[in-house]
């Protein structure tokens, strides 16, 4: 297993190099720049600003400078938030996105897994139809509809929660439920599908024939195999959920990284775009590795080869 993980981690280096290079040049070839604005900046001031950020140097040199900085863990200054570095912005905003993502993931797992298992075990019963319909609804209703609906009901009419901000502990509830429900719907459907497939396997029939209780059959024998599709889904999903959700963060005015990820592209904040892409790509690579390890652990047919 050690060799497997070490080999995979070594593969990260060329992957990250390609991602950084592609992003660096793609973002630089987009029309408009960080200082393009409705009210044009006088040319001499633009020149000063470009010199301040090193944008007056040839592109290849800027690229090499950037690579040199990244190797030392320095993601550079932000163009939009002039007196903050990208490292500072990520350090400030990532914990918020992590908190939002973790709580939403908890909601998603607590709702999605049991519902998925129940729906599979009680296949074609009213419980299955109810859970499947809820799952379909969760997938069909986008967060930008569910979020404002929850805000309207529990924030504006009942005054139980704030509808924007991230100061009070109760500010977490509406955004986490909104984000969690959507993922819960996917998890429910994948769990149900995985469980149905496993429950038809011979070894489950054998377990039942040997007199194992239904709970033991489901929880001990079937669940492990039934969760494989969910685990595959969770790898990239966790990376997405932890690095923030642009929609949820905008609806509830949450100071997370998701908004920066999207807005940095609109603002042509070159360094922030690269910083967030590096973080996101790094998380995807690591979580995919974790998924592979977990899958081997869950499925005895797989090996670390």
């Amino acid at each position: 297993m050690f060799h497997f993980i070490a080999r995979r981690l070594l593969q990260v280096i060329p992957v990250m190099f390609v991602i950084i290079t592609a992003t660096f040049f793609m973002v630089r070839f987009v029309p408009g720049g960080p200082f393009t604005a409705e009210k044009a900046i006088p040319p001499e001031i633009l020149k000063n600003l470009e010199a301040h950020y090193g944008l007056d140097q040839p592109l290849w040199r800027q690229y090499l400078n950037y690579l040199g900085r990244v190797v030392h863990g320095d993601l550079g200054p932000s163009f939009k938030y002039s007196n903050r570095t990208v490292n500072e912005i990520i350090a400030q905003k990532l914990p918020t996105s992590l908190e939002l993502g973790s709580l939403a993931l908890l909601v998603a797992l607590l709702v999605g897994l049991p519902l998925g298992v129940l729906a599979a075990v009680r296949r074609n019963s009213w419980l299955d139809y109810l859970a499947s319909s809820a799952g379909m609804l969760g997938i069909c209703v986008p967060t930008f509809v569910l979020g404002p609906l929850l805000a309207l009901s529990f924030g504006i009419h009942l005054h139980w929660f704030n509808v924007s901000g991230w100061s009070d502990p109760s500010d977490r509830i509406l955004p986490c439920l909104t984000l969690g429900f959507v993922y819960a719907a996917y998890i429910m459907r994948l769990t149900r599908g995985g469980m149905l497939e496993v429950l038809n396997q011979d070894y489950i029939r054998t377990a039942r024939a040997k007199g194992a209780s239904e709970a033991r059959v489901v929880l001990q024998h079937a669940l492990r195999g039934g969760l494989l599709p969910v685990v595959s889904f969770l790898g990239p999903a966790i990376a997405g959920i932890l690095t923030g959700s642009f929609v949820i963060e905008t609806i509830f005015q949450i100071p997370g990284l998701g908004r920066e990820f999207v807005n940095s592209a609109f603002n042509r904040d070159y360094t922030l775009v690269l910083g967030t892409v590096i973080l996101y790509a790094g998380l995807i690579v690591v979580l995919n590795l974790v998924v592979d390890v977990v899958q081997v652990w869950l499925n005895p047919k797989l090996k670390f080869e």
Binding site: A151, L152, N162, V163, S164, G165, T250, Q253, R259
Partner: peptide, 13 residues
């Protein structure tokens, strides 16, 4: 609050 819709909800609440 960048989104005017979110800002309006914040006002109403």
């Amino acid at each position: 609050i960048e989104s005017s819709d979110t800002e309006e909800r914040a006002f109403r609440s």
